[in-house]
């Protein structure tokens, strides 16, 4: 039995003590990646945000650090037969097949709208040969309103047995090196996770002249309907994204962070600010929000707000102080 509390000991709480507040801590979320000055580290991932305009009615695009548009090729591309998407445990598979309107139509029809916003536009692109990569890069190079390029190297090379560029260090080096010579724009190389050692590809891209790396693209996967015994995707296999892939993505960012000097953009299953900060801690200077946009069109903005809160609460003064500060 505890001692009785005497009446006189119980008093009301004192009023709040005036503190300096947060005024002394000016929060700076800006970050420079590959020479692109971003006002904050939150971007939207390619293929999950259309050409930006689709989301304009739902979120203030001006708040984003950058938006990355759907991957472009030289000519418009039709994409794969349906069904193209299927939900899986805490994730989704897609086999869109890189359907896009082509670089030329993008510049003419979509870019003028994006120029109206105070947000960096990063153009994701790909090709099925080194020449196509270079040609797309050249077309985009001379255009006003594009802050940088993101090269998707998870694409098959028609000239060498449809081997994916991003699964072979020699091919990666050659395609990145050739593109590097075709554009003056900041060049981000987006890595595929479907390889045995991602650091080898990362180094090849670094040696070839990439300014930054983004990772990861979707993990290759499939799903089957047991009643019909048919694949759930028209293309049989597709790419897995969403919360299910976050642990894999984090590990790969951490590995790459330890093996190259380039700034990294973390991608994979980011749904919340905490997820984004995890990526910073393992070495990402910025993040891309993908599948989360489908679940909540406001996701990227909420993540940004949450990062601000975290920085304030933990008195983090700028993004650099968070990057790669994993305690191991």
């Amino acid at each position: 039995m505890g001692r009785d509390i005497k009446k006189s000991e119980v008093i009301p709480l004192p009023p709040p003590v005036e503190k300096g507040g947060r005024g002394d801590l000016t929060l700076d979320l800006s970050v420079n990646i590959a020479g692109i000055e971003l006002k904050n580290p939150v971007m939207t991932a390619s293929g999950t945000f259309g050409y930006g305009e689709e989301y304009a009615p739902y979120i203030d695009l001006n708040r984003l650090g950058a938006l990355v548009v759907k991957g472009l090729s030289l000519q418009p591309k039709q994409g794969n037969p349906p069904p193209r998407i299927v939900e899986t445990a805490a994730g989704m598979l897609n086999s869109i097949g890189l359907q896009n309107i082509g670089a030329g139509v993008f510049i003419e029809k979509k870019l003028p709208f994006l120029r109206k916003f105070d947000t960096k536009v990063i153009v994701n692109f790909f090709g099925d040969s080194i020449d196509e990569y270079c040609e797309v890069a050249k077309i985009l190079d001379s255009v006003d309103g594009i802050a940088g390029l993101e090269m998707n190297i998870s694409c098959p090379n028609k000239e060498e047995g449809w081997l994916e560029f991003g699964t072979n260090p020699d091919l990666t080096f050659r395609v990145v090196n050739a593109v590097r010579k075709s554009t003056r724009l900041p060049l981000i190389v987006k890595l595929s996770p479907n390889i045995t050692d991602i650091t080898i590809i990362a180094k090849a891209a670094e040696d070839a002249g990439a300014d930054a790396l983004s990772l990861i693209n979707t993990l290759s996967g499939m799903a089957v309907d047991v009643n019909t015994r048919r694949p759930k995707l028209g293309n049989v296999i597709g790419g897995l994204s969403g919360p299910a892939i976050k642990p894999v993505a984090l590990k790969m960012v951490w590995q790459v962070f330890k093996s190259v000097k380039l700034p990294l953009i973390g991608i994979g299953g980011i749904m919340t600010a905490e997820d984004a900060i995890e990526f910073m801690i393992v070495g990402a200077s910025a993040v891309q929000v993908g599948t989360a946009n489908f679940v909540d069109p406001q996701a990227s903005i909420k993540i940004l707000d949450g990062i601000e809160d975290y920085f304030e609460r933990n008195e983090v003064k700028n993004v650099k102080d968070m990057v790669g500060n994993l305690r191991v």
Partner: peptide
């Protein structure tokens, strides 16, 4: 058709 975004951004609900 199964959908992800519902607003024409993901290109998942394609029909020929």
């Amino acid at each position: 058709k199964a959908m992800a975004c519902g607003i024409g951004a993901c290109l998942g609900c394609a029909i020929k």
